Every structure is written in structure tokens, then in C-alpha cells.
Simulated assay, not measured.
Amino acid sequence: MSPQRSNRAQLVDGTLRCLERLPPERVTARVIADESGANLASITYHFGSKDELVTEAVIVGLDRWLAEIGRLVDAAAPGGTPQERFQAAISVVEQTRRDHEGLARTFLGAMAKAQHDERVRALLAEGFRRTRDDVARVLELGADAAGEDAGGLALALFDGLLFQALVDPGLAIEGERIVRALARLRGVMPTG
């Protein structure tokens, strides 16, 4: 007999399923409880509020997406240089972005909410700290402070492009266009 999943995990997974198929404004506490097979009151018990549950689910979903990206980069560029891994990551993010648009839209909403909600801000900040290290590891940028900073910049690049594409798919910069744009930026960056 396998161990039973916790009610908390059921709520997170149910929330992620809701985010995949519903616009964020239709993801209510009742919809999440129904999708999760959990009691409505368990949302408050485990998370304090629906917004905190959604934020935690977004972080879990983003962690899973990054793990998926890492696996695909490993498959596309096994033993590759950081440049090859970055190039593979561009392609992988492009391939997987549309599968995670609901998650990304809710992430954008959580970013806006964080400006007015300390608990949401704290959850997101912790997620960003962990993700910077994970991005640095996936791209093999190093485990030192400079590697973590580089991971943060790469994350900002991918998040920023993701947010722009959510606003208008015509704003998406993908594939070789990213490489050319980065080469142009590299030409104006100070050295040292």
C-alpha cells in the first residue's frame, strides 16, 4: 500500500490543475477544493488564505517547470559548455512556454500582489533565491556568488521575456533572435 498524499500536497496539485485550464480570476477557493478533493476549510488551515495557496502552488509549479527545463537541457546538451547549455535552454523554454501559460499568468499576478502582501512577497522572495541557484546549476554558471548573480540575470531575462509574451505574443523574442540580441548587448557592456 502506497502512502497517502497529504491534504496540503493535494491542494497544491489541484491548484496547479486549475491554473492550467482556468483564467486566474476563475480559480476560487471552492473550485480548488473541488479539484483537490479537499475540504474548503483546509485551505485556510494549511495556507492561511487562497492567495497564499495559489502563490505556493505557483512556486511549486515554477520549480517543476525549471526541473523539466533542466532535464531537457541535460538531454539536449549533455556535458555541454555553459554557452551550449544556454542555447539549449533558449530552445527548451520556447518549447515549453505555451504548456505553462496559465502558471505564468498567475505568477505575474502574484508578483503584483507581492507589493501589497508581505506573506506573498516572502514566499516569492524565497522562491527567487532558490531558483537563482537552480538556474546557475542548470546553465553550469558556477556555485559562487558570481554564478548565483549570473543565474539571477538569466532568470530575469527569461521571466521578462515570458511576461512580455503574455501581454502580447507578438512581443516574444525566441531562438536565434535572443542570441543576436544578447550579442548586441554584449557589445555595449563594460568589460572587467
Score class of each variant (00 low, 15 high):
I69T: 13
F107L: 06
Q83R: 07
A88C: 11
A122L: 07
A89H: 11
H100Q: 09
A136D: 09
A104E: 05
L108Y: 08
V135E: 08
A114W: 05
R137W: 05
H116D: 04
R121A: 12
R98T: 10
Q115I: 14
A136G: 07
L103F: 03
A146H: 08
R121N: 09
R130C: 05
N39E: 11
G61I: 06
T131G: 00
K50L: 13
E56M: 14
A67E: 10
S42W: 09
R71F: 03
A57W: 03
R71V: 04
A110F: 08
G142V: 01
A75R: 11
E68K: 12
Y45H: 15
L108G: 10
T44D: 02
S42P: 06
L66T: 09
V93T: 15
A112M: 05
S49T: 02
Y45L: 12
V93F: 12
L40W: 04
A76M: 04
W65G: 14
R71A: 10
P82V: 02
I59A: 15
R105H: 06
R64P: 00
L141C: 06
Q83A: 07
V54Y: 00
K113H: 15
E52K: 11
L40D: 01
F128Y: 07
Q83H: 06
A89Q: 09
R64E: 15
T55I: 08
T131E: 15
V93R: 09
E68L: 07
R129E: 07
V58M: 08
D74I: 10
D117Y: 01
A41P: 05
L40F: 11
G61A: 10
T55G: 11
T44H: 09
R98Q: 05
A88N: 15
G70S: 04
E94A: 14
A67Q: 14
A67I: 03
G48P: 06
R98L: 11
V92E: 13
V73Y: 10
V120Y: 01
V92I: 12
D63A: 07
G102I: 02
A122F: 05
E84N: 03
F128M: 13
V138C: 12
D99Q: 14
L66R: 08
F107C: 00
Y45P: 14
R98P: 07
A57Q: 04
H100S: 05
D51H: 12
R132Q: 14
A114F: 07
A67L: 03
E56P: 01
S42R: 05
R119W: 01
V120A: 05
A104G: 04
A57D: 01
A77N: 01
V58G: 00
T106F: 06
F128R: 07
E126D: 14
G127M: 00
E94F: 06
L141P: 02
L40H: 10
V120M: 00
V60C: 02
D51Q: 15
A89R: 14
G48R: 05
R105Y: 04
R137T: 12
D117Q: 01
A146T: 13
D51F: 06
D117I: 01
A136Y: 15
G127T: 02
R132V: 00
G102F: 02
D51A: 04
E52P: 06
V135Q: 15
D51L: 02
S91T: 12
R105L: 01
E118G: 03
I59W: 01
A125D: 15
E68W: 06
I59C: 08
T96P: 04
A57F: 14
D51C: 03
S91A: 11
V58T: 10
I90K: 14
I43F: 02
P82S: 04
A57P: 02
D99K: 11
L141R: 10
